[in-house]
Design a protein around this nucleic acid. Sequence first.
DNA 1: AAGTGGTCTAGACCACTCT
DNA 2: GAGTGGTCTAGACCACTTG
Lengths: 241, 241
Amino acid sequence: MIETFEKFNMPRYERVRWQIQLLLTENKWDKDTPLPTESELSDKYKVSVGTVRKAVEKLVEDGILFKQQGRGTFLKQPNFEASLLRFFKFRDKDVGYLTPTGLVKKIVSISGVNIINEKLNLHNNESLIYIERVRIVDNKIILSEKIWLPRSLFENLVTLAPEEFENLLYPFYYKKCGQFVSSAVEKLSFIKNHIDIYLNSDGKKDLVKVCRIAKNLKGEPIEYRESYGLADNFSYEVNIN
Amino acid sequence: MIETFEKFNMPRYERVRWQIQLLLTENKWDKDTPLPTESELSDKYKVSVGTVRKAVEKLVEDGILFKQQGRGTFLKQPNFEASLLRFFKFRDKDVGYLTPTGLVKKIVSISGVNIINEKLNLHNNESLIYIERVRIVDNKIILSEKIWLPRSLFENLVTLAPEEFENLLYPFYYKKCGQFVSSAVEKLSFIKNHIDIYLNSDGKKDLVKVCRIAKNLKGEPIEYRESYGLADNFSYEVNIN
DNA sequence: AAGTGGTCTAGACCACTCT
DNA sequence: GAGTGGTCTAGACCACTTG
């Protein structure tokens, strides 16, 4: 392995970075379990502390680790549920922005669906778990979600009833199935005159559709999700450099 | 100045970063004029090369500088015109994605407008330049833009006719007025049944509206722009970490 | 007080670009 | 060949957190 890295002229800090990333796939890091210290890592991988620091810095930039002076370096548990606010902002009269709660309405095991399996890098015959879920603010459904998971990775979910799911799905995946979501790609589009059983009872509406592929630390897709919301609630802000 | 920095416990690399940023506001850096070398900077600011490197790294992350091994470090000329593709993707049958060309239709000097002046951090009585501009792909208008500039900074533009503007505005601002756009905030929203004189001749349409505040190196707003496009053409993709 | 990450230095050698 | 940034080291001292 190390020889391979060397052959490709990969700098040591990159090599260390991948070693650490490998370390992180072990299911034992939570927000209070620090990684080995910088000097331990520098001993382990036979590089200077400065090189370890550079590797770790990259992982911090990627949002995978976070450091706390005096305490240590930790695996970051991203909160995508809150960061759906990237696309939708639901403003309360008094409080400001709200985080919607999640409620699973339906969960079934289904056979492979070509276009979904493709997004999840699965063979067409591999079966899936399909979930319907709504997001609620102030007793009002404001988002409707369809979720597809590779059954092979999420076997432990198939026997659960909708009520047994928790409010936030990604920490739940990790607890029940050891699947850790570390990044995602979202694609946004606009669809007109659509109907959604959870979202609008009174006919067709203009909706915003967000397609998300969520990935684990290795960059492998582990969830495909489509979120629908009313276009009226939509708001998005981005910084450009 | 330096004492001030020290008092606030600002690390040296941060201080150096600000010094460099100050350097950059001098109107003499283009894509072929390298900054002073790392060792020159380390002499000048009385810190080690490693500290300079850290300062420069930050500026590279911010998209303000770029480095090229063997050549030097340069001020980055961001191409926002191309990066409007952040929100709109216009797909050509053959070529893939296209960069639209820009055409100024109208330029006038106007008195202050409260809501605009606010966005530009101007007093209400300060006057503005107002520009209407369209973006064209394949002989078809696909974006309509309204642009407001502080007249005090862009005095040199008021005497120009629409034809005298170049395809890309931001390099043009820099050439004519020494105003360098280095970052921006964009806000996206949907508007229904709107009419736009350049965009749609056959009545009201659903539009996507992108409001942009463009800023100089000091973070001061220097342009406010509203871009309108048909919702059908809209597509946006984002990575989350 | 002990241990963590945060800052900073001085110097070495490598990889690339230009002339 | 001269000069640039790219990688890497070994060590110092500081700031913060925890027992």
